[in-house]
Design a protein around this nucleic acid. Structure first.
Lengths: 225, 225, 225, 225
DNA sequence: AATGAATGAGACTTCATTCAT
DNA sequence: CATGAATGAAGTCTCATTCAT
């Protein structure tokens, strides 16, 4: 299969299949059925195991324990599921990180706890690494939105830190770039450690976290008198 | 041949074609013919346009202007080409960066020139971004080797800077992690630059480079008295 | 789909799906639908016309009047059909011969009626000759099983004849070899019959059957004095 | 590969390629060059190892140590080689058997020595079994001619035996059928034993030879009273 | 809503044959 | 005569999607 749609970025993009249904009612695809939930969950597992490329409708529906055809009662096509996978599967991680850093007093503590929470969530949901990572390729829009959200939260957190006096007095525009740098370095670190063990992720080394903090904090932290 | 201007961007000096005469093995192909070169080049373009997933043999050979079957005269199978794509397409970039930072006096200047050369090379070879990025998925071994090389060069460069006194006195082990952080942040920046508008960020400009330098230098540079 | 190994990262360890079991496994197909029957029947005809080598999936499904892809709903791959062809197509002939020789009083009559029934069945199902003959090459296991069955039936029949006093008092072991000799000579005769004019022999007639019986029953050596 | 041509017996038989060449001289394909000999010999080995279906021109020429294209200087096409393989490779066996039975005094001795010589030749030329066996499928004309020759020699030998008084007084027509029966039973026996060991053919059991002789010379019917 | 057989486009790969050198 | 790169038709198999039940 040529894996068009999402995979073809700068392409002529032949529209693959015309959508047409009775406009009356039953095409407003049920958003909350139990079956739909099972399909999404199964898709997460299958992508974790075989990647998006190996996540055929057949495999997903088999994993979900529903009929092959049932898929199309809940998603317009394969890409529709792919587009929804990262947001729905990844939402929990965002919540976990938010919870971990809530009411954190200092920038340093925010970074330390956030990174740790991030890593622990990935260790408990091994499929998420692959779902996130390959999403950049197979669901670029969702990926951008997801990463954008992470960066935006970061940005706001950094602004609060700045206003609290924990951060050097960057301008608002500069803070956006700083957030991007932090996000990049962090995702790189996470990727490094997520890959190592393949199955049983080994906990991110404490040393690496400290170096990360040291490098960034001593770079961006305000020098108190 | 379907070469469309973009191909002849006076880059690789195209040595005519060394005829290899040795009794070539029937399966483990390693030839160096002009046709092979055209296939690799075409594959780069096709991956740039359609991604690895959309880079079918048919598309690649059509782009290269050779018969479908000719492909298998030069590569044992599709994966063999995929494995070779990043090293062969990406070699030029490494050379360009090396050349740019050679004989650079200071850490700051190394970073600035290296990053700039990196940008400029990507701008001149737009397909490389996608070739590199998706290689992580489609040719993980090649990707690891390639990224490993980059990181290693980085590491050695940082050690020289340290010995020169430009860098804080990190231990050797710490420097490896610092190199990883820098590589991650940098590749993230580059990615943002290559994909216009992703995450709502403007294309990378001078400001972002300066912030990158500022953040890292003030974090890792030695504080001279 | 491209799905080429590289995309499956941490897989083979985890049990991906229910191992091949009875209950409607997704891959080990054993269905009994009307379509499956049509495919097998069509395959018989196509092999009769073009041989196994010329029996492409395309030809078979066209002959069966189903879509190309439908084939793989009923057989895991081409060889799975090939393996099943002789047993399924040839079962009828075995039944016909068995019926013909049932309750036959004498060895001579068994041989005569069995051979005749054999001929007649082949004449009514012209494709079977080729299906059987080429099976030795394209489905050796099925062929061995099929021929083994024939020989075994033969052996048992000969033993009954011996016990009845119609046969010379061969040992059990000798009877196995005798069964092989008879099977060989017989299949050779049939082959000659099925292929008009091969080796310049006329189609098998009553005379040849009688000579076959005569030679085997009485031997060829002259009885001296 | 669909391997049509020879494999399609009762088919529409599209003539695959018109032969036309400068009628002057150089198309009278050289029949005696050293290269040609090497190709035929290599083809025998390759067929022995991989069967006709696996005997690609590439493999054959590689085994022969000549260029791929050289093949077509000696054979009009693949089928032309296939057609020539059995006669050229199998000629030696016919000679060996003839020599073994020459000047044999009795029918019994002829059969015994012939069968033994036959078997021994096959044991020394392991590829011949497959070349002969698959020839029925891939070069039916050559196969018929070859088997016809064997049968014809047999027929003449049997007639001499008859005239010598060793054989029952069959008519000439009957003797042809007897020759066919003997050939069939014999080839079946040989096949049985050629297959068993795969590599190191175990010598045809003396017992089997004796039973073969006994059955044919004396028949299988009990002699009443 | 659910089922699962059917469809058919499209992917990879092989190989007999040709042809410029 | 020899060489071996190039050609392109044909084959097997996969899978997103549809549809009758």
């Amino acid at each position: 299969m040529l894996e068009d749609g999402a995979a073809d970025r700068g392409d002529e993009g032949a529209p693959p299949a015309p959508r047409r249904k009775r406009p009356s009612s039953p095409r407003q695809i049920e958003k909350n059925s139990e079956t739909r939930r099972r399909i999404v969950e199964a898709a997460g597992k299958v992508v974790g195991r075989h990647g998006y490329a190996g996540a055929s409708i057949a495999r997903i529906t088999a994993e979900a324990g529903v009929a092959h055809g049932a898929f199309y009662l809940h998603f317009a096509n394969r890409q529709a599921l792919v587009d929804v996978l990262l947001p729905e599967i990844g939402a929990g991680m965002l919540r976990a990180i938010s919870a971990a850093v809530r009411d954190c007093p200092s920038l340093e503590e925010i970074e330390r706890r956030g990174l740790t929470a991030n890593f622990e969530y990935l260790a408990r949901h091994p499929e998420l690494d692959r779902v996130m990572n390959e999403a950049e390729l197979y669901a670029p829009d969702s990926f951008d939105r997801y990463v954008g959200m992470i960066q935006e939260r970061y940005r706001r957190s950094l602004m609060r830190s700045r206003d609290r006096g924990d951060l050097r007095p960057f301008s608002d525009a500069e803070i956006a770039t700083v957030a991007a740098l932090l996000t990049g370095a962090r995702s790189y670190l996470l990727r490094l450690y997520a890959r190592e063990g393949a199955s049983g992720m080994k906990p991110l080394g404490r040393e690496q976290i400290e170096i990360y903090l040291d490098v960034f904090l001593n770079g961006i932290a305000a020098r108190r008198a």
